[in-house]
C-alpha cells in the first residue's frame, strides 16, 4: 500500500479510537444514543479498543517514516482526531453510532 494511504488510515484510526474513548464517557454516550450510559463492561471494552486503536495508528506511522518523524506525525494526528471527534459530537453526534455496529437505538 502507498505511504499516503497508510498515513490516511493512521489518521482514520485515531479518529475512530478517540470516538470509542469518547463513547466510554457517560456524557458523550448520552449525546450519541440519547439513552442511559453504557454498562461498566461496555465502557471498559470501548476504552480498550480505543487505546489499541491509537497504538495501531502509531505502528502504522512507524512503518511509513523514520521513528523521529513518525512520532511527530502521530502526535499531530492525535490533535486533529481529538478536534474532529469534538466537532462531530457538537454538530452531528449520531455519526458516532457507526462505531458501535449492531446496537439498536432506544
Amino acid at each position: 500500500m502507498s505511504d499516503a494511504a497508510l498515513l490516511a488510515i493512521a489518521l482514520l484510526l485515531c479518529v475512530i479510537s478517540f470516538g470509542w474513548l469518547a463513547l466510554a464517557m457517560d456524557a458523550h454516550w448520552r449525546q450519541v444514543w440519547s439513552s442511559e450510559p453504557p454498562g461498566r463492561t461496555t465502557a471498559r471494552w470501548l476504552r480498550i479498543l480505543g487505546w489499541m486503536g491509537l497504538a495501531a495508528s502509531l505502528a502504522l506511522c512507524l512503518r511509513v517514516d523514520h521513528a523521529s518523524m513518525a512520532s511527530l506525525v502521530w502526535v499531530m494526528n492525535l490533535a486533529s482526531a481529538a478536534l474532529i471527534v469534538a466537532m462531530v459530537l457538537a454538530w452531528t453526534p449520531r455519526w458516532l453510532r457507526l462505531l458501535v455496529p449492531g446496537r439498536r437505538c432506544s
Binding site: A4, L7, S68, M69, L72, V73, M76, N77, A79, S80
Partner: peptide
C-alpha cells in the same frame, strides 16, 4: 529540526499549519 522543518513530508507540514492555526 522539528521546529525549523526542512524535511520532505507534506502531511506533517500541513499538520504543522493546522497546529499553528489551532
Amino acid at each position: 529540526g522539528l521546529h525549523l522543518q526542512h524535511f520532505r513530508h507534506w502531511t506533517l507540514r500541513w499538520l504543522y499549519v493546522f497546529g499553528g492555526l489551532l
